[in-house]
């Protein structure tokens, strides 16, 4: 465990180093994410009545009656819905990235470390699933199962994990053949210890970068599903849902689509920018 703690300290000091020479973009991204985080944590204070608003069916323009961004087609305050929507915009994607990372670590390590027939089976599985159009399958699965938000999260985890598995597998394979692993193997140290103590620290950065990218993809996919009316119920606060609802009242209150559209674009760009920046600093090539 000592090594793992060292690693954590190391990554922490690297994070400080990251902030020493930061482009403006990194500042901006951090600010956007901080704002989203505040909305997420204090959402219930900032927008206490987002989900129990009166349904009046009148659309108000921005500024009317104290509604900063006006109201949507059902007469609900757009600003409050936007804040309340942060929850489903962030929690689902983070869960997707986390679940996919865990599956990736488990199967990637089994496949990359042990090799053999298990590796063959896992590799064929990832080949097969990576060739498939994931959004297409997600639409069908989410539409058919129809179990709401967390079922969609689960479907996404299953669809995202093959990429993580393949990535971690190849990272593990690159380490396994190196002399330092050969030598600990000769020392007859338990496989689990070798994996956790010696290989994991060398794989963790690439997994972390991918974790970030997965959050951004997760945000886009989940809001795509709710935009199509799948995944979340109409009463739910969700940016994709807001976009779909706002489409019909564009002439009455344009803010009802502009605000959530910009929110999704900003947050997903910020996550991608930070992930890309970390990758850059650790010398990981995300291009190929």
């Amino acid at each position: 465990m000592e090594n793992l703690q060292n690693l954590q300290i190391k990554t922490r000091s690297s994070v400080y180093k990251l902030l020493a020479h930061r482009p403006v973009l990194v500042y901006l991204s951090a600010a956007v994410l901080l704002c989203a985080l505040v909305w997420l944590i204090f959402g219930s204070i900032l927008a206490p009545h987002a989900l129990d608003q009166d349904i009046t069916l009148t659309t108000l323009s921005p500024g009317d009656d104290g509604h900063i961004l006006g109201t949507d087609g059902l007469g609900r305050d757009v600003w409050q819905l936007l804040i309340a929507g942060t929850r489903s915009a962030l929690i689902g994607p983070v869960l997707i990235a986390l679940g996919s990372l865990i599956l990736g670590l488990i199967f990637g390590f089994i496949s990359g470390y042990f090799g053999g027939p298990l590796d063959w089976i896992i590799s064929r599985y990832t080949d097969l699933t990576l060739a498939m159009p994931s959004l297409l399958l997600a639409i069908v699965a989410a539409g058919v199962i129809g179990g709401g938000y967390y079922v969609s999260v689960l479907v996404m985890i299953i669809l995202y994990s093959p990429f993580d598995i393949r990535l971690i597998r190849s990272a593990v394979r690159a380490e396994v053949t190196k002399p330092y692993i050969e030598s600990v193997k000769v020392m007859k140290i338990a496989s689990l210890t070798i994996m956790a103590r010696h290989i994991l620290p060398n794989v963790v950065v690439i997994a972390l970068v991918n974790f970030f990218l997965n959050i951004a993809y997760g945000l886009v996919s989940m809001s795509a599903l709710s935009y199509l009316g799948l995944g979340v119920s109409p009463a739910h606060a969700d940016w994709g849902r807001q976009l779909a609802d706002g489409k019909n009242i564009m002439y009455e209150n344009a803010a009802s689509i502009i605000a959530p559209a910009i929110a999704i674009i900003l947050v997903s760009t910020a996550i991608n920018a930070l992930g890309g920046y970390i990758a850059d600093r650790f010398g990981i090539d995300t291009e190929s």
Partner: peptide
């Protein structure tokens, strides 16, 4: 990073 439908609506 931007989802296509958000760009489309804008």
């Amino acid at each position: 990073s931007a989802p296509s439908f958000a760009v489309g609506l804008l």
